[in-house]
Design a protein around this nucleic acid. Sequence first.
DNA 1: CATGAATGAGTGTTCATTCAT
DNA 2: GATGAATGAACACTCATTCAT
Lengths: 205, 205, 205, 205
Amino acid sequence: MITLTRKERDRQLRKTDIIKAAERIFALKGFHAATMQDIAKEAQYATGTVYLYFRDKDTLYFSLVEEKLQDLLESVKIDIAKVLDAEDKIRICLDHNLDFFEKNQDFFRIFLSERTKIQVQKENKLYKSSVLLQYKEFIVSLVKIGQQQKIIRNDYEAGQIAEIFFSIFVSMIIDWFMKEPKNSARLTNLSGFILDVFLRGVGRK
Amino acid sequence: MITLTRKERDRQLRKTDIIKAAERIFALKGFHAATMQDIAKEAQYATGTVYLYFRDKDTLYFSLVEEKLQDLLESVKIDIAKVLDAEDKIRICLDHNLDFFEKNQDFFRIFLSERTKIQVQKENKLYKSSVLLQYKEFIVSLVKIGQQQKIIRNDYEAGQIAEIFFSIFVSMIIDWFMKEPKNSARLTNLSGFILDVFLRGVGRK
Amino acid sequence: MITLTRKERDRQLRKTDIIKAAERIFALKGFHAATMQDIAKEAQYATGTVYLYFRDKDTLYFSLVEEKLQDLLESVKIDIAKVLDAEDKIRICLDHNLDFFEKNQDFFRIFLSERTKIQVQKENKLYKSSVLLQYKEFIVSLVKIGQQQKIIRNDYEAGQIAEIFFSIFVSMIIDWFMKEPKNSARLTNLSGFILDVFLRGVGRK
Amino acid sequence: MITLTRKERDRQLRKTDIIKAAERIFALKGFHAATMQDIAKEAQYATGTVYLYFRDKDTLYFSLVEEKLQDLLESVKIDIAKVLDAEDKIRICLDHNLDFFEKNQDFFRIFLSERTKIQVQKENKLYKSSVLLQYKEFIVSLVKIGQQQKIIRNDYEAGQIAEIFFSIFVSMIIDWFMKEPKNSARLTNLSGFILDVFLRGVGRK
DNA sequence: CATGAATGAGTGTTCATTCAT
DNA sequence: GATGAATGAACACTCATTCAT
């Protein structure tokens, strides 16, 4: 029993190793320019080894996106559930996201590309990230709660308002990133400003 | 002299032909998947001919971005100059952008990628679009005018507020695109809503 | 008009160049061990050039088999048609084959592999050579004529007798090949012997 | 001593296990497409274990051919020795072969490939099967006995006539295989026909 | 001895770029 | 200038073989 568990754990460790390396390389070069050898080398494995853990380059890329987003989404959901007030929920969600992307800057770059790719390419053979869709759905649900609790205007679709929320905080992250590395202020400091802009912008009255 | 001018004009015409073809192909397939042959064929030229007008693939891509953005930026600037009121200036700018991207949907896809790429890739060999920077600067200057005329809060940097303005209207364009083709409503109809959200969100008081 | 024809002719010349190179390499190393680079080098072209003329390795291989067999089959059919007597037809067919394979020894090696592959592999994704099937059908038709003219026994299927005819002369070619290069005797000298064995073996009475 | 013997016996048992698995896999996929992992899995061993018994893939392949052919050859030789008449010897040899290949259809596919490969490839790094050569020599010796007993014509080399004998019965086996699985008739039923064709074809007078 | 994860050389194929016509 | 055939570097992926456990 212990043997099997150790094996499984080892396997998971290696997958994580590789995903971390892939994160750095994909962030640095983008999907196409990154080669499997780059990633293998970064992870200190041979080329073939990467293929023991991920069927192909696409699979590696999507596993990375899914895994990271899954983590973020789950932890946000847990914390959100602890409060009832819509504004509190939104604040917690926002803080979580800012904190997460500050700690996962490489992933943020990938996340941004991925988001754009899905929106943009007409002929997209890449299987769309299901977790990215869940993530968007989740934000929409938050907005709906806000509308029910009458702190968010309901003369526009929750989907549109969610897009606005999302794009405001993403734009603030980008802005923060562009100022690096001189910037030592915490990204989470922007939380208050973002929430203020958002709630004033789309709030009721 | 006239001969030279005609030659120049001819040359410009061919460049525009190729750029239009490139626009369609890049929008359809994305930068990497689009091949120079695809583009040459779409433009009804031979592969080699494209290289007579653009040094390489990157150059073609950036010429396309620059040219289109230049057009947009110039026409916006002219119209903006006609009014003095900051809110009017912003409204005109917004309307112009919405109208432009509705008419240049292929370009919007490219623009979005480009914006992300510049923000995102660390190791970016592509020379950054100078017009994209000008474009951003221009929006910042609008915000500054708003701040001077005291319709926009000045407790935050104009750069940040410009990012917010930009990201809100881009997100609304994306939302509009995703609903295609069922959507027949004009994109410009969203102008009022966007301006409202923006000015409430970042307006003074 | 002339330009087009020349172009077509050029293209055909290059295809033939490559097929000839492929013939040598495939005969030398077999399908799997032969690399596209080997073939390109042998044909004195760059790797990519081969792909301008043949979609992929399989296609190159099959074009080679089809083209050569087509040539053989057509010329045999023409000569066969000139005589009525079944024995004469069979003799002509035999002579033609011996002469052809003596002149196309590299192709004979490939032909033999191909024949075996088709017979042998259960899981064969390679599209079967349609000309090889036609070739077999043609020999069967010869046997049937022999049966009608009562020079070949008809207590067994024409298909089986065709197999015997085919395998006898192929075995004699192999035998002749194995003795190379000391052997200077013509392969066609064996014609009489082969025909004698075959007709005695399967003849009536 | 007993320990060593048991060890040896065990080792032989494992080799046979692996060879049986290899037989199935090679017959199914052919030499190149079959992977060592396929074979190991089929034999229910780990990949590395196969290498404890066979130096490399080539060696495994040839051991398989050698072992099977050895079995066939030995049993034929024993039965042949029981009779003196050349025709009887040939009949027994034929029956044995038909029976063997009917029972070892996977091996027949491999055998056929192997025979072709040896005849065909110029640049053959595979060590030629010595037993295959013995097998051929044995058939030649049978033909020579036939020639001595004056039932086989001696105006041609025994080697050539042996090739004919061999190729006729192989072609009949192939024909029988191609008709599978509808065919339930025993392959050995063809014995009489084959012998008849052969002896008429190459018999004296 | 047995295992099977790790290795990395090797191959088919694509495509930006060049250059002879 | 225009052409498009030719080039060859580059990359994803496979698999025979090894070796630490």
